[in-house]
Design a protein around this nucleic acid. Structure first.
Lengths: 182, 182
DNA sequence: TCCACTGTACCGATCGTTTGGTATACTGTC
DNA sequence: GACAGTATACCAAACGATCGGTACAGTGGA
């Protein structure tokens, strides 16, 4: 089995337990692989596992979210498509954000940089849509940041309050809110 | 020394390293207490330490934020006071949120419930201000949730992007945004 | 025969926790 | 004031368990 096939299960583990909490025992159990096999696929150990997960997350985001933002269509429609994908990504507000969880805990600079780059790319993709919609570049940047703030905040609050309805409501109104005149 | 005097240092550790990452060795070093002494003050071990930290956080929030929301004055002024305190709480966007970090990782139900209650109280305090400002109860609830979403999202995004300016900008505009007509 | 892959057994280090104990200060009794 | 008793605060050392990681001998398909 190629090592890519284990990434989704690794992602789920890291998302649930965080970096320190996702022990090799849990990883071994979840993947069905012994430690030796894990180190065959990921010679760099746990660090390489989490790096692979982050790399996969970034490409998933690119293919499933950012590409939709860069596609053709009306700005509002594109933002709506993004929200739809984001909604599945966070299971409608029931699952926490992998990036948010992996940047806490034992802070590795490499991990932080990787997550930062992913988030920055996301902001830029939204900002591009807004510039295309006629907004000034500075305003577009601010609104794009606001959009990501809303998404990340909604995930955290919904998950903490055990109330996915909050996430649903926010995601539904997000496109109009971002595009609305000040 | 009373055990309360160690809470701030414990908070800082848990905020930086998370539950699993804040080992007893680090705690021992940071507090200057031997491991056995830590168990003298916190017989329940690490769980009691983090519970004490969460308890302290809740009371800090009550005394420094929620009390300002319940005080006299114009709604916008009270929300502004909240933002000022929140700004110091998160060091202007340079520090992550303790609650957000402690609810990830090895998930304890007790911890989750404690954090949930704290966040819910915060939402309710804001909603009360908005109701007092004349908003319908349902709308007030939504806007209060939006306010907390904005705060939590801004902390996460600012911290991840290493860009406190984002946090500053969002916090400055928050009172007007929340009170603005739809 | 080669090679990707895996199971077993092991390593040193560190985890959270406990034991057994010391030093100090504050009691009440004589 | 002297003295036994008690409570508080602290520590060094060690506990069993588990951590992340490694060595090595297979094993099965090409």
């Amino acid at each position: 089995m190629p090592k890519e096939s284990y990434i989704p299960r690794l992602s789920a583990l890291f998302r649930q337990y965080g970096y320190d909490g996702a022990t090799l025992s849990k990883i071994s159990e979840a993947t069905g692989l012994g430690k030796a096999s894990l180190y065959h696929h990921f010679p760099g150990g746990k660090d390489e596992m989490v790096e692979s997960v982050l790399c996969y997350s970034a490409s998933w985001l690119q293919e499933n979210v950012l590409s939709l933002l860069a596609a053709e269509g009306a700005p509002e429609e594109r933002l709506q498509n993004m929200c739809d994908r984001v909604n599945e990504l966070y299971a409608g507000g029931a699952e926490p954000c992998l990036l948010a969880i992996l940047q806490s805990g034992t802070g590795s600079d490499l991990r932080h940089a990787q997550i930062q780059a992913t988030l920055a790319a996301w902001v830029e993709a939204i900002a591009a849509v807004l510039r295309e919609a006629g907004w000034d570049a500075a305003i577009a940047q601010q609104r794009a940041e606001d959009a990501l703030i809303t998404i990340q905040g909604a995930v955290m609050v919904s998950f903490t309050l055990d109330n996915p309805a909050v996430f649903q409501r926010v995601m539904q109104s997000l496109p109009q809110v971002i595009l609305k005149q000040p």
